Simulated scan of single mutants.
Amino acid sequence: MSTFWIGTGWKMNKTVAETRRYIADLKARLPDDAGADYALFIIPPFTALAAAREAIGMAPVLLGAQNMHWADAGAYTGEISAVMLKEFDIDLVELGHSERREHFGETDATINLKVKAALRHGFRPLLCVGDSAEERAAGASGAAVVRQVKLAFAGLTKSEISRCLVAYEPIWAIGEGGVPASPEEARPVHVALHVALKELGAPSVPVLYGGSVNLDNAAALAGEQAIDGLFVGRAAWSADGFAALISRVMAARKAATSTPAKAMPAIG
């Protein structure tokens, strides 16, 4: 099996003490073979990164940050730079989340600057893209997220794009009142993203799905061949919830390897 990504972003939740407890509990619950064929990650708030790095230790869990500025230093009150994040030995950085775009004025242009800065400092960008309810109703979901990807990756080489991750997070599916996309709904958008990435010369970039992922739908989403991973919200904010979801996905994917595979949707 190719590497399947499973991660969670905590948003503005968890103290340092809560972070330590979460990671200790997660390590105790992880399946023994969780590090094989799977890339697991957590994205705590900035204040908990040091504690998270220490608590993770040698466990097969990658560490990410929720955002960063594009400049290495400067008069940007309240911002965090890549230089600062390097001290925590993070592996990836989440960029372009729809909440950042909506509430904090992030644009495609500033996200592009952040992606370039993350790559310059050796981080793997996790680019979040999503369609609005209006774009979905108009049948423009694929076009909307492909546009975001192309603008975020503008000016990058094929090699640089290949070091990135993309997370498709429908705006209408995230948050407390979000309704998750079914595998059938997510499939054409993921296929459109794969086509765009192939056109950009980076067909191997994983495309994750995020948006009200939970124990009930995780296995079905993971079974969709155009989906390369899951970016989980509140269902993974407890260690036992995240561990249970990981186990369910692993079991479903193992079962799938023992049955004839479905044809992968054409991606150009």
Rank of each mutant, 00 (worst) to 15 (best):
M1Y: 03
W5E: 01
K11C: 00
M12N: 00
T15N: 08
I23N: 00
R29P: 00
P31K: 00
D33C: 00
I43E: 05
F46S: 07
E54D: 10
P60K: 11
L62A: 13
H69V: 02
W70T: 07
A71F: 06
G74K: 04
A75D: 14
D89M: 15
E94A: 13
H97V: 07
E99A: 14
A109F: 08
T110Y: 07
L119Y: 03
F123L: 02
L126R: 02
L127M: 12
G130P: 03
R136P: 05
G139S: 04
A143H: 05
V149P: 03
K150T: 07
V166K: 05
A167T: 09
P170K: 02
I174Y: 00
A181V: 01
A181M: 02
E184F: 09
A186P: 06
R187Y: 12
V195I: 15
A196F: 10
A196M: 08
L197T: 12
A202I: 13
V205D: 11
G210W: 02
A218M: 04
E224Q: 11
D228F: 05
G229Y: 09
F231H: 08
G233V: 09
W237D: 07
G241P: 09
S247Y: 07
K254Q: 15
P260A: 13
P260H: 14
G268S: 15
